[in-house]
Design a protein around this nucleic acid. Sequence first.
RNA 1: GUGGGUGUAGCUCAGUUGGUUAGAGCGCCUGGUUGUGGCCCAGGAGGUCGGGGAUUCAAGUUCCCUCACUCACCCCA
Length: 420
Amino acid sequence: MASSSFQPIQGMSDLTTPEIYLWQMVESRSRDVFQRYGFSEIRTPIMEHTKVFVRSLGETTDVVSKEMYSLEDRGGRHLSLRPEGTAGVIRHVGGQGQEAAELRLYYMGPMFRAERPQAGRKRQFHQVGVESLGAPNPASDAECIALQHHLFNEWGLKNFSIRLNTRGLPEDRQAVADGLRAWLRPRLPELCEDCRRRFDLNVLRVLDCKQEACQVIVDQAPPVTEFMSEPARVYLDEVTRLLGKLSIAVTRDPKLVRGLDYYAHTVWEITHPALGAQDAMAGGGRYRVTLGNRVIEGVGFAAGLERVMTALEGEGITAQSLAPGPNVWLVSMGDRAFEENLELLQMLRRHGIACGMDMNGRSMKAQMRVAGKSGAPRVIIRGESELENGTFQLKDMQEGTQEDVTMPELMARLTPLRVQ
RNA sequence: GUGGGUGUAGCUCAGUUGGUUAGAGCGCCUGGUUGUGGCCCAGGAGGUCGGGGAUUCAAGUUCCCUCACUCACCCCA
């Protein structure tokens, strides 16, 4: 096995062939979809002042309190690797110093969280996400969910489900916590140890406890919306209604909890059955962040690409099936033919044909073996007699047939194979 | 941070109660006579058994430490 000096950092990995084809497919189709919805790309730095994350995500959230990669630079500045994408975008928008009118941005790239790795959880992971700023109304939330639904379909996913809930307005938060505590207090002895701890620290978390015993109790609890103000309930109903109009199937789930402090109103999560314990493939919600005397409002989502890849494979979409191969393979007999083929190789490539040939001076038999493995549908064979006649043997690897062609004929047969 | 599982060839794994030069399948390379792949046949390369220490005449096999991978918890995408 490789010694540790050849391994990347724990929880971080090299992404290469063949999986990379799945990543490239997801990335390029994402750009297509985002363009159709009028979103443009933003690439924020991977590192920010630590306070950028603290002020957006909340000081007490686990993500900032114990999962950030933080360091102090030589100037004594406190910096952190970004654990998610929204905070950087909010920083960017806040810096504009003006009301951001209908700003629609998307991003994709690596995020970092110092957690223990497990299925669907890496320390360097990747997200693609969007932020729709400055349109604080239910239609905007519904559009965002519709975009995400469209995006997933475009990637090839079918079996995902969308769970929808509301976090309520920031001013509802205390009422929700109080209401839930009041209901749970008499049942406290029946809850698991973790939940008794959560009861004080973060009651909402009791709702999504994985212990069966806790679930039985929590299932009887009143929905969180019951503790919220009228506007919060109306907002959620309106989002739900609009999604119905757009034929996007969602499940209202009053037990859905999302952990970051910036959420206000709508929150949702998308799960996929192929995922295992960490079955959330993507999450999103409406948020409200106060920066000085400005309030930045937006709605957005992020999808975890490592989890998306697992889901795609679960639905039979494999990296192997997306791997591009050469259109043509060149086989040479003898040094002269080799050099002629080297020239032909370049010429064909300039014409947009993906082609390759053996560079190791191997026997013809070996070259044919490599040609077969390359998956190229056509092979060009040249030896002394072809050089003599100025022709090419063009072989169809599928059929096993072969014909002797001239240069113009060769080009006419190969042009349809061009990539792009 | 806590707990379980696993580390033997490029990959997937066998390796009996510790005992001679560590195996298989797949992959890779070379051949099976003149210039033709896939199938078949033959041969070959490739491993300090994750690393370190201990016990023993003898350790892939036992014990301790360490590193990594993996799954789960906390929490999140």
